[in-house]
Write a protein that binds this DNA or RNA. Structure first.
Lengths: 189, 189
DNA sequence: TATGACATGTAATCTGTTACATGATTAG
DNA sequence: CTAATCATGTAACAGATTACATGTCATA
């Protein structure tokens, strides 16, 4: 629907802004904890927030009078929440896998709070399907090329296959976890 | 030694140029096979080759008279080979792990042909050490945070841990493979 | 009053993406 | 002759990195 392309960092910010935060808060999330893959530099985050605000995805309000220096607190707009949901719920493609789990995991991590547990299960199923095909294709590629590769190159390739296989097993584990949760709460999937 | 910073794509090109190739050859490597993570667009590769040539890492020579259109074949210079070796053999840091296996695997894949099998074993050992510490740290972080996380966020975190654990197991497998190779050839490690 | 943490931003530079432009050679 | 493939590039733009600049507040 919206034609503006949002880079990965933008979606990370949208997801985190489900809880209203200042730019500084967001930087701390990126610099501490996991998510260190995203830059915590102000030169990345403040311009990104500016772009999101201009696109109407978030709205900043200066927090007054709380003693400290002026802090601008950003919140998701309805449009921003909608965009976040679209990004999360779209099916997993081969390209998503080629270009690293990073972004898929971000989608999954935000899924439950932004869309709901049922969407998390759907995302996992989509991921499972895509991974099965991808792992099979990688196996085939290895068979065709392994004769012409030096040992280290072959091992590096095998590492990629194992990583994706591990990822696939994780989807089973995650689905089983949701099934258990579902039974406990008696929800309809 | 050399002060110019080379981005990941630059090292990928240096590694591939162990076999002299044209820009077009390199693009095909990126677009087909694995390594799809690197862009195959001419706007990325030709400028990158130009920078490497200006830095004295590679040298291009126009291939004449072979019937086709002029093709420029690039070769590693001694300086370029030295830079490649330095990049491959430097110890694996925590940051290398945080920022994805991608680049480490590239180093490993080129290791055997650029430096030799003994260096591959050293790289694997360095990687193993770094991974053990990293996995332990991730486990600890999970323990501290799991109470405050929604299920999907916790599962996403666990996915990261499992992935690194799988990666660690791969290093054992790869080391075992090299040990076997070493015994077969009677080399001294 | 000086230091450090809080908090926000800008400017220069580099790299990558997208899209376009060019030209040679080969297959139909 | 025309289209596709080989082969190389450029230009405009978006986004990230790095480094710098600014200013508040608490505390030692």
């Amino acid at each position: 629907m919206s034609s503006t392309k949002i880079p990965s960092l933008g979606y990370a910010l949208l997801g985190l802004l489900q809880k209203p935060s200042s730019g500084y808060d967001l930087r701390k999330v990126f610099s501490s904890t996991s998510m260190k893959t995203y830059s915590d530099s102000p030169g990345a985050i403040y311009p990104a927030l500016g772009r999101l605000e201009k696109a109407g995805m978030i709205r900043g309000a200066i927090e007054e009078g709380s003693g400290l220096r002026r802090r601008q607190i950003f919140r998701l707009t309805p449009k921003g929440l909608s965009e976040l949901k679209h990004w999360i719920t779209r099916p997993v493609t081969r390209d998503d896998l080629v270009w690293g789990q990073q972004e898929i995991m971000l989608r999954f991590a935000f899924c439950e709070t932004a869309v709901g547990p049922a969407a998390a299960v759907e995302l996992l199923q989509s991921l499972e399907t895509a991974l099965q095909a991808y792992v099979a294709a990688l196996h085939e590629e290895l068979q065709q090329m392994k004769a012409a590769m030096p040992a280290s190159a072959r091992l590096a390739f095998e590492c990629g296959i194992r990583g994706n296989q591990c990822f696939l097993e994780w989807t089973h584990y995650a689905l089983a976890t949701y099934e258990k949760e579902g039974r406990k709460k008696g929800g309809t999937l």
